[in-house]
């Protein structure tokens, strides 16, 4: 697998020039995004975990075969999400009236109502963003896993994957469903459909994906594979 940066704390004089990094241009250095502490990049074996010397935050956690695993988990996400959209989500019955519908059906039913914005926002957060993130991650990692040069705008794709992470809320939706079921328990009988279980599986897939994810490793791999960054070439570049 691709090597990851090992990061050691720099506690040296400002004009220090050890091999491998440059305190005047920032070459070979990494700054902790949480506390700004500088670390020197060096090789790191898979399975090691590196924490910031200053704030203790996680800096790098490369795992062997992580790229292939992440790609597989992304495809799993998309497949599960298709099931979660088109299979029945909740089945409800009350006084002889019974019905079952999928999320897709719900979205269609609301398509011309005043609630459209709310439904649209919810659908984006629970379905749209997880799928989009899966595609962006595959777009970033697929060439890297094969040892080829990354696709155009791979850096932007991966940056968006990370930016959208907090807005992808499938796991919160599952808890919301549980609360909603309790609330209607007195009014009707509700059964969970296969789509609900698909959402539960998505949470597990998401957790596994998080375990394999090491942003530092991926940024390093994108850089080492010679990414042309959006047309801007690195000025006096840090690329080795």
């Amino acid at each position: 697998m691709l090597p990851c940066a090992l990061l050691q704390g720099v506690y040296l004089a400002p004009m220090d020039t050890r091999d491998g990094f440059d305190l005047t241009t920032g070459r070979g250095l990494m700054a902790c995004p949480r506390c700004d502490a500088l670390h020197v990049e060096e090789e790191l074996d898979a399975g090691e975990t590196l924490r910031c010397v200053r704030c203790g935050g996680l800096l790098a956690k490369p795992r062997g075969g992580a790229f292939v695993q992440l790609i597989a988990l992304s495809f799993t996400t998309v497949v599960l999400m298709m099931g979660a959209i088109f299979f029945p989500f909740l089945e409800i019955s009350r006084m002889g009236f019974g019905n079952a519908t999928s999320l897709f059906g719900v979205a269609l039913a609301f398509a011309d109502g005043v609630l459209l914005p709310l439904v649209l926002a919810v659908m984006v957060m629970i379905v749209g963003l997880p799928v989009l993130r899966a595609f962006l991650l595959v777009y970033t990692l697929a060439p890297l896993a094969q040892g080829r040069a990354p696709y155009r705008h791979a850096a932007r794709a991966f940056r968006w994957t990370e930016l959208l992470r907090p807005w992808s809320m499938a796991e919160i939706f599952v808890i919301g469903t549980a609360v909603a079921l309790v609330k209607v328990a007195g009014l009707a009988t509700v059964h969970l459909g296969p789509a609900f279980w698909a959402f539960c599986a998505l949470i597990l897939v998401n957790l596994a994906s998080r375990g394999f994810m090491c942003q530092t490793t991926i940024w390093d791999a994108i850089e080492d594979a010679g990414l042309p960054t959006d047309g801007r070439e690195a000025v006096g570049g840090p690329v080795p």
């Binding site: 909740l90 409800i92 719900v106 609630l115 209607v184 009707a188 509700v190």
Partner: peptide, 10 residues
């Protein structure tokens, strides 16, 4: 979710 249940013939 509760509003969506209306669409189920609730």
């Amino acid at each position: 979710i509760l509003s969506a249940l209306v669409q189920l013939g609730f």
